[in-house]
Design a protein around this nucleic acid. Structure first.
Lengths: 193, 193
DNA sequence: ATTCCTCTACCTATCGATAGGTAGATTGCG
DNA sequence: CGCAATCTACCTATCGATAGGTAGAGGAAT
C-alpha cells in the first residue's frame, strides 16, 4: 500500500465515521482499527485531530464542488440538474443513514477547531455560489442579494430535511420534504422518476 | 439550595452546554464546575450520562410543547403565531449562537443512547403535530398526509436555517431565510416587525 | 436516628499526542 | 557499481489528561 493509498483510506474511514457519529466521536484508535494500522501512524499523516478534521472538510468541499461543476456543465433542465444535486444529499442517507459532513460539523460548530470551521464554512459558501449560478437564468427578476438569500434558503432547507429525515430513518420522508419544497415553490421541482 | 434547585441548575447548564458544543462534548466534570458542585454529585441526580441526556431532551420537548400550546391558544393570526414559533428557534441563536437542542442531537444521532433518541424523535413529532394544527385551517385542500408532509418540511427548513445561520454567526441571515420561506410560499409569511 | 445530599478519593477505560525505533525502499556519491 | 546516508511508513510503549462511573465517609435537616 503506497502512502497515498493509506492516507486516502484514513480519510475515507474518518469521513464515514464523522458522518455517522460526529466529529467529536471520531477517535484515532478506532479509526486506526478500521484502517488496519496503529493510531500513531495516523499522526504520521495528520499531526493533530484538527489537521485531520480540516483536511476532511476541505476534501469534502472540493469533491462536492468538482461534482457540482460537472452537473452544471452537463445536460438537462434546471429541474433535472437540481434533482441530481439533491440526490447527493440523499445518497448520504442511503449510506447507512449518514449525514452530510457539513451538517454534522455545523451542529458541533461551537466545539470545532478554527481550521475546521473555515473549511466547513467554505462548503456552505460553495453550495450557495453554485445554486446562484443554477437559478439565475430562471430568476431574472431577483437581484443578486435576493438570489443569494434564496440559494441559502434552499441549501438550508435541504440540510434540514436531511437532519430530520435521519431521525425518522426513512428515505421516503426525505423525498417527501424535497417534493414539498418544490410544490411550495421554494426550489425547482424535482421530476418524478 | 434545595434538591430541585440543584437538579434544575444542572439541567440548565447541561442544556446550554449541549446546545453550544453537542452532546458528546458534554462532560460531567466541566458541567459540575459551572454548577459549582463535584461531578459525583451529578451522578446522584443522573446515574448515567444517558439518563441526563434523555431527561434533557424530554424536558426540552415538554417545555416547547407547553409554550406552543400557549401560542396556539393565544390571540393573533396564523402568520403572527407562526412568527412567534419561529422566534423560539431564533432565540437559540441569540443566546450566544447556540442551536436548538433537537438539531444538535439529531446531528449526533448515530452516537446517541437509545433513550436519548426516543426523546429526540418526540420533539420533531411534537413540532409536526403542532404545525399541522396551526396550518389546517389555512389548507382545507390538503389531506392529512399532505399536511403532515408540509409541516415536516417547514420544521426541517427552520432547523436547517438555524444550522446554516449558525455558521455565519449572523442573525440577519436566519431572518432572511425565514423570509425567503414565506415569500416562496412554503411557510406562512412572518410579519415584518 | 434516619434520610438526604454532597463530598473525598478512587477506579478503569480511553483520549490525543509523543518518543524512539525499525525494516525496507530510495537516493547521493566516490 | 557498491556502499552509505537518508527517507518512508509504519511500529511499540508510554505520556498526561480526561472520560464516565463508584464506594463510602460525613454534614445537615427533620
Amino acid at each position: 500500500m503506497t502512502t497515498n493509498d493509506t492516507r486516502e483510506t484514513i480519510l475515507k474511514a474518518a469521513q464515514a465515521a464523522v458522518q455517522a457519529k460526529g466529529y467529536n466521536a471520531l477517535s484515532f484508535r478506532e479509526l486506526a482499527k478500521t484502517v488496519g494500522i496503529k493510531s500513531a501512524s495516523i499522526h504520521y499523516y495528520f499531526p493533530t485531530k484538527g489537521d485531520l478534521g480540516a483536511e476532511l472538510a476541505r476534501r469534502y468541499a472540493d469533491t462536492a464542488v468538482a461534482y457540482f461543476e460537472k452537473l452544471i456543465a452537463g445536460e438537462g433542465s434546471i429541474d433535472e440538474i437540481f434533482a441530481r444535486y439533491v440526490a447527493v444529499f440523499r445518497a448520504a442517507l442511503e449510506n447507512d443513514n449518514r449525514m452530510c459532513l457539513y451538517g454534522v460539523m455545523a451542529a458541533e460548530y461551537g466545539d470545532l477547531p478554527d481550521e475546521v470551521r473555515v473549511a466547513v464554512d467554505a462548503f456552505s459558501a460553495a453550495n450557495v455560489d453554485w445554486l446562484v449560478r443554477l437559478l439565475a437564468p430562471r430568476h431574472p427578476e431577483l437581484d443578486e442579494a435576493s438570489l443569494r438569500t434564496r440559494a441559502l434558503a434552499i441549501f438550508a432547507a435541504i440540510e434540514g430535511a436531511q437532519l430530520v429525515a435521519r431521525g425518522r430513518g426513512d428515505l421516503a420522508v426525505f423525498d417527501q420534504m424535497v417534493e414539498a419544497y418544490g410544490v411550495a415553490g421554494l426550489t425547482p421541482k424535482v421530476p418524478s422518476p
